[in-house]
Simulated scan of single mutants.
Amino acid sequence: MPCLIARPAAAEVRAPDTSADAAVDGYTYAELTPESDIGSAPLADEVALAIAYNGLSQAVMMVSPNDLEDFVHGFSLGAGFIESIDDIYDIRLTPHGDAIAAEVQVSNRAFWALKEQRRQLAGNTGCGLCGVEALDQALPNLPVLPSAPLPPAAHLAGLRERVNAAQEIARRSGAVHAALFVDGSGEIRLCREDIGRHNALDKLIGALKRQRLDLRDGFAVVTSRCSLELIHKALRAGLPTLVSLSAPTALTVQWAREHNLNLIHLPHRSAPRVYSPAPKAV
Rank of each mutant, 00 (worst) to 15 (best):
R236S: 01
F81G: 03
P240W: 07
S276I: 10
G123Y: 03
A23Y: 00
A41P: 00
A79I: 08
S270W: 06
V144N: 04
E69M: 00
A237L: 06
L215T: 14
A20F: 01
G126V: 06
R14G: 06
D217Y: 11
N124W: 04
S270K: 12
A23K: 10
A10V: 14
E35T: 15
L242E: 01
A101I: 06
L201G: 12
A102F: 05
L242C: 09
L204P: 02
A256R: 07
E12I: 10
H268M: 07
L121P: 00
S246E: 15
S270D: 09
G80H: 06
A281M: 09
V163H: 00
R273V: 14
H155C: 11
A9E: 12
L68T: 12
K233H: 09
A256V: 12
R269W: 05
A256F: 14
Q254P: 00
A170N: 12
L215G: 00
L32P: 09
A281R: 11
E31D: 03
A278C: 01
A237R: 04
S40L: 08
R212K: 12
E133D: 10
A6C: 07
R160L: 10
A50P: 03
V144H: 04
A165H: 03
G126W: 08
V144G: 00
W112G: 02
C191R: 08
G186L: 14
S64Q: 10
Y89C: 02
L190K: 03
H96C: 08
L204Q: 05
V104H: 09
N54Q: 01
D37L: 14
S76V: 07
L245H: 02
A23N: 07
S84H: 15
Q137G: 09
G174A: 05
G74Y: 04
A59I: 08
T223N: 01
L150M: 14
G238A: 10
S224P: 04
L114A: 09
A10S: 11
T28W: 08
N66R: 13
G238W: 12
V274K: 00
K203G: 10
Q211N: 10
V176C: 10
H73D: 13
A134C: 07
F219T: 05
L251M: 09
K280F: 06
Q58E: 09
R269D: 13
T223W: 01
Q117L: 13
P272Q: 09
L129K: 11
A157S: 15
A278M: 02
G97N: 02
I231A: 09
Y89R: 15
